[in-house]
Design a protein around this nucleic acid. Structure first.
Lengths: 337, 337
DNA sequence: ACAACGTCCGGGAACGTTCCCGGTAACGAT
DNA sequence: ATCGTTACCGGGAACGTTCCCGGACGTTGT
């Protein structure tokens, strides 16, 4: 009754659907005058090709699916902005989904996205995803996939991440240079690839400066709402003189807990976050952070994916791309005591 | 070569596609034994119905489209979480899109979503959208639509928003009760519906306490990255003793600018934000805020939309739903001077 | 004059479903 | 024996496209 189809045009102009279809796609074998008529009529009735029918026919959709653990996270939302910018420019639509850190939701969402014939997949793994075999299967079925931020060592898929090792190294080195020696590390769940990279950077810095690694100073925190506070409390028993938090959320949680105890920052304890929070310098005290180039990660990841989709990538070199981080020094890591 | 279809099952089991289709949907007119065979075989080969084909046939998709101006905004991302929670429970998939505060992108995105046969639309208007006729047309074509947060008075569509008037009133009243009299209001673009509601609440509070309304104390700020600072600077000329910022972003901008000028908060100037920022009490100083129930807004909006989709809403009463806000008092509005 | 070619167009299958319309048995009731 | 049911199942159209195949007509070359 309302959406106008190619058939309607054909009927109205006394043509066949084939002719109309070809006229609309500007085929060489259609008379110029006929094309004009068709295009004009289509224009006038606001004809829009039905993408569902096209997808069914062509087995593709010009849509790329993006799956992140959480959208309410500035890092991911900025990555998405980067993705959209390049995807849009190159003629792709972007559909965004959340896994909510759940393997089941991630799996279901990916299946759905694939069933809807997305041309490619951009995904950051949920923290509860250990079994990535479903992604391997998709990969074997030639579905273009690019991982970002949270990659997986079990998967030979192109990935784009921040240089977490270097970032964590820089953070830890900075703390050491500011005279800290007992540096606690509040890490994200060990299942996530970047947790290990950041931990490694942390350890490497300690090693370089001859500080023994003390595993009592390292704790992993999950994504529960009140998980950070008890962990910080535990760590405080070890009398650290600095906290290195491995994410936005954790840094904020550390800050809140330390304040609760009336611990002077950086007087007694220095604090550094691994984050993208824009309000870092409005906090009390302004917080030193390792900034991840979220936007750029998104842009690069989307670019690689689309290259893959369009077959520009002859060599499917799945060498991971690492984007440099940036240490922004603020008050929370000044020399203390 | 890989995705298995109903035809494959039919061929393998020597049945017709009709029978297989019916068996899979558990039709009463299929023999129990046949059903068993079909279901088992389908299970074994991991058969998944092709949602594209189903959409084409049924003219629906069990997908609801969500369009927000910006995802990198805690308010919207929390609303989305609310939406997803109920949508998921009721058997709908959610596709998320951003308009980036652009009318053209919004229009294009909505068209795309509609063309893909979304069953309904949940949308928060971009600040540059003045012409909502395209939405009216969709509404006339019986597409279920629910607006949230940013509604439009030109549109007779169900909407779910925070109670912006009451929230702004409470904020302003609080400032007045703390002894402030020259209360500056940094508002969001006047084109957005909630800007007017918040302004009205602000004015009503002034009126109630016999404070004359001074239009020099009210300025609207757009979404540019550096738009807030000059506006705050301008307002400072009017020597205000309080700032009421109408959004997250603006409140943060005010705070940053005031700090730049070394203005004591709340000593010289009090500050209150209209926001959802979780770090409000970690800021320097902890910021008093009017909190919007973002999650609930999302839940209610999704609920209404799905009711609409499933025709449970006999009366299409488009009376707007208003969800109460909550005033959280922190240090930034203590009595000054 | 006739083949050969170019130009322009239509018929119809196919993508994977659903569903309407039928049809065939078997069986009890008349 | 005939009829009406009931229980099952298949054929095929339809959703909106694209594209292969083929055909009609006119023009050109020999």
């Amino acid at each position: 009754m309302d959406t106008i189809t190619i058939k309607d045009i054909a009927r109205a102009l006394n043509l066949s659907t084939s002719t109309v279809s070809r006229a609309l796609r500007d085929s060489y074998e259609i008379n110029a005058e006929t094309k004009r008529q068709v295009v004009e009529y289509a224009e006038r009735l606001h004809y829009r090709p039905n993408p569902i029918a096209v997808s069914l026919k062509e087995n593709r959709s010009r849509v790329i699916g993006v799956i992140v653990p959480q959208i309410a996270n500035l890092f991911f939302s900025q990555v998405i902005n980067g993705i959209e910018a390049v995807a849009y420019n190159r003629g792709y639509h972007v559909s965004i989904f959340q896994s909510h850190e759940s393997y089941e939701r991630e799996l279901a969402t990916v299946q759905q996205v694939v069933a809807r014939k997305a041309d490619g997949l951009l995904i950051s793994l949920s923290s509860n995803t250990v079994d990535v075999s479903y992604l391997r299967q998709l990969q074997e079925k030639k579905l273009p996939i690019v991982l970002f931020d949270r990659a997986s060592k079990d998967l030979d898929v192109p990935s784009v991440t921040a240089d977490n090792f270097a970032g964590a190294f820089a953070a830890t080195e900075h703390l050491i240079q500011m005279g800290r020696r007992r540096i606690a590390h509040v890490a994200i769940p060990a299942s996530i690839s970047i947790a290990q990279e950041r931990l490694a950077g942390y350890r490497f810095a300690l090693e370089k400066y001859g500080i023994p690694y003390d595993e009592n100073l390292v704790r992993h925190a999950g994504f529960g709402p009140n998980e950070v506070e008890p962990i910080v409390n535990d760590l405080l028993i070890q009398s650290p003189d600095a906290f290195f938090a491995a994410s936005d959320r954790l840094a904020i949680g550390c800050l809140a807990t330390l304040k609760k105890w009336n611990i002077a920052i950086p007087g007694q304890i220095a604090l550094i976050g691994f984050t993208n929070i824009t309000v870092a310098d409005l906090l009390d005290p302004p917080m030193t952070t390792v900034e991840q180039p979220a936007l750029e990660i998104g842009q690069v990841a989307a670019g690689r994916l689309i290259d893959l989709i369009e077959g520009k990538q002859k060599t499917v070199s799945s060498d991971p791309v690492k984007i440099a981080t940036r240490l922004v020094i603020r008050a929370s890591t000044q020399a203390g005591l």
